[in-house]
Simulated scan of single mutants.
Amino acid sequence: MTTVAAYAAPAAKAPLERTTIERRAVREHDVLIDIKFTGVCHTDVSQAREGWGKAFFPMVPGHEIAGVVSEVGSGVTKYKVGDRVGVGCLVDSCRECDNCEAGLEQMCTNGGMTSTYNAIGRDGEVTYGGYSQKIVVDENYVVRIPDGLSLDVAAPLLCAGITMYSPLKQWGAGPGKKVAILGLGGLGHIGVKIAHVMGAEVTVLSQSLRKKDDGLRLGADHYYATSDPATFQELAGSFDLIVSTVSAPLNFDAYLSLLKMPGALVNVGVPEESIALNLFSLIYGNKTLAGSAMGGIAETQEMLDFCAEHGLGAEIELIAASEINEAFTRMEASDVRYRFVIDNATI
């Protein structure tokens, strides 16, 4: 066991505070990672405030982890000391079910995936995330960060990047396709970059035009305000694919009207409230309302390699660990462009 410093929420809705946690001893197939940077995801806020249900406390959030290997177990074959690596949203799964064998570990059907934090691992211990100095992870749930990516801008790719890359790839974003990214935040800004490089015609749909210059700079071809009713009239039947990053309940009937026939509205944002939907919005036009949950380990590595090849990283605001609570508050007010990243040397 190793004692490391961390920032944890002691109880639901309580401010995070500096503390210490225990990391397990390195096992045969484990790697010990010195964490250099950790992205701050909206999921961290929701979990620490029990927005998605009962949670485990004290909670150390953080599932956008970038660092350097400092120790490896005797059976490790994929990594060596000094390698630049990342850890995303999961740190274990059953490894035997059809989904795990297909590289869809995030959809494990035998006990579910083990989340990087706020979960009970298969060893019976609570998992703690990246708001800490070090983490121990089985090598099969670690990915390599290519040399072409700086660790600070790579960290948010471990959640935000794969969360956007996976549906864009699955639903065929590319030349000849019109893709809308709903929401230009921590997820959406990376989605714009990826969809643009894939060759799609990209439109940002945002509540206002406040970030229009940023959206166009990041690769969007068009930018519309959803607060303007004329937007829905002008863009009716326009898109092959809409990826919604919004974490608030939407008028899904209105957004489904923006799709071509057939088109898909894929949700990666998770509202805490239930939604309403008139099924005729789907039936007329053979449209699809779908969800997408991250990606597996192999696809996450594919995404990192893709981003490195095209020079894509997150737009970040680097913060000290002492600023985490302020960052949570600012995120809730949409006051970040576009991802907070913790400098873990300050923990």
Rank of each mutant, 00 (worst) to 15 (best):
A254K: 15
A6Y: 02
E302T: 14
V69P: 05
H42V: 02
R18I: 11
G39L: 08
Y223A: 00
G121P: 01
V45A: 10
R95A: 11
G112Q: 01
T346F: 03
L209Q: 15
F280T: 13
A11R: 14
P58C: 10
M261G: 12
Q233M: 12
V26W: 01
E315N: 13
Y79R: 09
F239S: 07
A154D: 03
A290Q: 03
T127P: 02
M1A: 10
P271F: 01
A12H: 03
T226V: 04
E317Q: 14
G185R: 03
D228E: 13
A225I: 08
S166I: 02
G237Y: 09
S257N: 14
G183I: 04
V72A: 11
M107R: 14
V136I: 09
P61H: 09
F239K: 02
L279W: 08
R24L: 06
K260N: 08
S322M: 08
C97V: 04
N267I: 11
S93K: 04
V40P: 00
F280A: 12
Q170F: 11
I297Y: 04
S150Y: 09
P175K: 13
L149P: 05
G73S: 12
R27A: 14
V243L: 13
E317M: 07
M294N: 15
W52M: 13
G215F: 02
G103W: 00
H189P: 00
V268H: 00
S46H: 15
T288E: 09
D343M: 10
A236C: 12
S206D: 15
Y165V: 07
C100W: 01
I65K: 07
S334T: 09
V179L: 06
T19K: 12
T38P: 02
K178H: 13
D83S: 13
L318T: 15
G188A: 05
T43N: 10
Y7W: 15
A102W: 04
I194P: 03
K212C: 05
Q301W: 09
E317K: 10
D147H: 10
E317A: 02
V40R: 05
K169R: 15
D221E: 10
G295E: 02
G219R: 00
R95L: 13
F328Y: 15
Q47Y: 12
A48C: 15
V197A: 06
V85I: 14
G124E: 09
N118C: 08
M59H: 10
D98T: 14
E139L: 04
